[in-house]
Design a protein around this nucleic acid. Structure first.
Lengths: 221, 221
DNA sequence: GTCTATAATTGGATAGAC
DNA sequence: GTCTATCCAATTATAGAC
């Protein structure tokens, strides 16, 4: 234990508090509307200290957004889903997805990245790989399992995964991004996922000699 | 003919050229990165003239974006679609939608609005009503016609319209917004719409005692 | 309405002491 | 590494002549 550098900040030095302050500021106001003075003030350090850790405003912004992408979309695996119970598994996947993308921080991150992707093209790649691409691969993996077991009938799993994401998202995410509704309601999320899963199953569940717990008829309920 | 004010500008005075220059600048660079000097320079007027027509940068921005929303999403009607030919009509609706939202200007507008909706909350409402809401109503109107004729079986037309939009959009729009693909390919648009229409019909076309031109079986083709 | 010139403020970045 | 104080450039907005 030779290099303990405990000064007085509660969590990991000033670099962390600068990143935390910058994250709050950028996610709330975007890139252009936030000044380095404001970040330094909120982090309770001097502006020179900010520049000692991050060479420019652009570099600080990139560090904040990149870290946020990695942290926010980490830790999802598709292993524990049951390919035999398609409805429950799709409900779980859809709920995870909507809870993630409709959280206030994720919405703010989405707005920032789309607003600044022209000026910072690398953010588009970073965000896509950390979030949507990972999500698609997870869903595609489950769909392939279900197709192998025989509960789903999909000619093109990757395309079906994109369609499932589209069905779940609908226009809810856009309404939230545009701030047309005050908050993401939990009941609303469940209802949207339920409707999407129902449509997806109507389209892709095996119907000929099906033996699952679905209703035997073809009514839309 | 007493008040003809033809000076020398080719189209409608300096206010129009200011708006045109501001539109180009804002759509290319966003709000924060564009200066009033640059707009005045590109419009070939002085900065004082800009302020004589628009009281502030915010006001000019709002005028540009509001006008752009209205112009871009105008002129779509659902009357000429045939409720009897569901596949062709949905293909047409989907193609219109994707061509609209994947055009470079619409993508730029989308990025700007999402990036600035926190600072300009009214833009969210303006954009939603001019674009997505109008599109949804058009699709919903067709779906209700098709349900009335009996070619589709939909318990909730509004929800089905949102699901159709989600199916058509998939993740293509996001990839374009993030600039992960150089351009919206025309073949890609047709393929995406075709896949979405196929899934939608699988889920919602009347199957019991159907008499349409669809394939009689339940294969996913 | 339109221009030139300028006021007044802000913001990114740095120098130099410790 | 950290701070105080400061530089320099850019930006919004306006004053005053025509």
């Amino acid at each position: 234990m030779g290099q303990i550098e405990r000064t007085e900040t509660p969590a990991g030095g000033k670099a962390e508090s600068i990143l935390a302050a910058a994250k709050r500021a950028f996610l709330a106001g975007g890139f252009g509307a936030v000044s380095m003075d404001a970040i330094a003030r909120e982090a309770a350090v001097s502006k020179a200290t900010v520049y000692a850790h991050f060479g420019s405003k652009e570099e600080l912004f990139g560090a904040v957004i990149g870290r946020e992408c990695e942290q926010r979309f980490a830790g999802l695996s598709a292993g524990e889903l049951d390919p035999g119970d398609v409805r429950a598994s799709l409900m779980e996947l859809g709920r995870r997805f909507l809870h993630l993308v409709l959280s206030p921080d994720a919405l703010a991150l989405h707005r920032i990245i789309l607003g600044e992707v022209i000026r910072f093209p690398v953010l588009g790649e970073v965000f896509w790989r950390a979030g949507p691409e990972r999500n698609l691969q997870q869903i595609q993996a489950f769909l392939e399992n279900a197709a192998a077991v025989g509960t789903l009938s999909l000619p093109h799993p990757r395309l079906a995964a994109e369609q499932f994401v589209g069905l779940v998202r609908g226009e809810i995410q856009l309404r939230q991004l545009l701030r047309l509704q005050p908050e993401a309601g939990l009941e609303e999320i469940n209802a949207a996922v339920r409707a999407a899963v129902k449509t997806f199953i109507l389209a892709f569940a095996r119907r000929a000699n099906a033996s699952g717990p679905q209703s035997p008829g073809c009514t839309t309920n």
